[in-house]
Amino acid sequence: MNEYNIREMIQNNKNNKSTKFIEKAVPTILFIITSVSILTTIGILYTLLSETFIFFTRVSFIEFITATEWKAFSSNPSFGIIALIMGTLKIVVIATMVAVPVGLGAAIYLSEYATDRIRRIVKPILEILAGIPTVVYGTFAITFVTPLIREMFPGVSLYNAISPGVVVGIMIVPMIASLSEDAMSSVPGTTREGSLALGATRLETVFKVILPAAASGIIASFVLGISRAIGETMIVSIAAGSTPGADFDLTSSLQTMTGFIVQVTSGDAAFGTDLYYSLYAVGMTLFLFTLIMNLAAQWITKKFKEEY
């Protein structure tokens, strides 16, 4: 076995041009790739802003935010975004009423009561639930939940706010449950034990110690869940109908902002019409709503970050 002179071999390879070039090029390449995420945001803003701007040269901004009727397809159209916002609001309120108690309850159970074994079974189920496509949830709403509701309350029409609202709520349960559980689990065990050792029950510990300590994370999870509900599209497109209206009726057909976008784009919105541009004005409004919610969630998490 002849001996190789390793030091010499390494020395000879020292000035490898390609290694040096790669070393210089990689950070630049990666930065260019990273900038795509910025470009995406710019693209979204540019798309929404430019077309929305054109929309407001045709339809007055005042009408858009004050009128209560949305009749985009009419020969005498009216563009009052309130009607669509109202539709979104109905869905969001119902969804929140379902998702917050159920999600929080599940989070409390998983974090404070469940054994490791149960946690190992339940968490993947929640993950599967979170991974079910919204078109499947929509189908579930219209073919299962709606008939069920209509059987119990015959006055409810085929398209209504309750069924899609409940299903949107179920859809965001996994998100609220897992984020809230994360927040509660990160409360240190010593805090928990301190309360339990005084003779407090699990329940009292949860409400007096754990929930206050994890409040910021839990509230952030609610806000993110609501943001998701605002942006949810397929469930409402399938099960909520397409009748925008600024009323409080939960039992008849309605339309959300997302539902409107889908309705217009599944047909042929001729390029350059008011209808076409209204798509972007609605998209912009929707974007603003979700952006505010997301920023709020980030702000809450950062501002009230618990230091353990």
Binding site: Y4, I6, I10, N13, K14
Partner: peptide, 16 residues
């Protein structure tokens, strides 16, 4: 380390 410094021959690596 040898690979990082450009030594790729299996025989050399085995010996190292």
């Amino acid at each position: 380390g040898a690979r990082v410094h450009g030594i790729r021959k299996k025989k050399v690596l085995d010996q190292i």
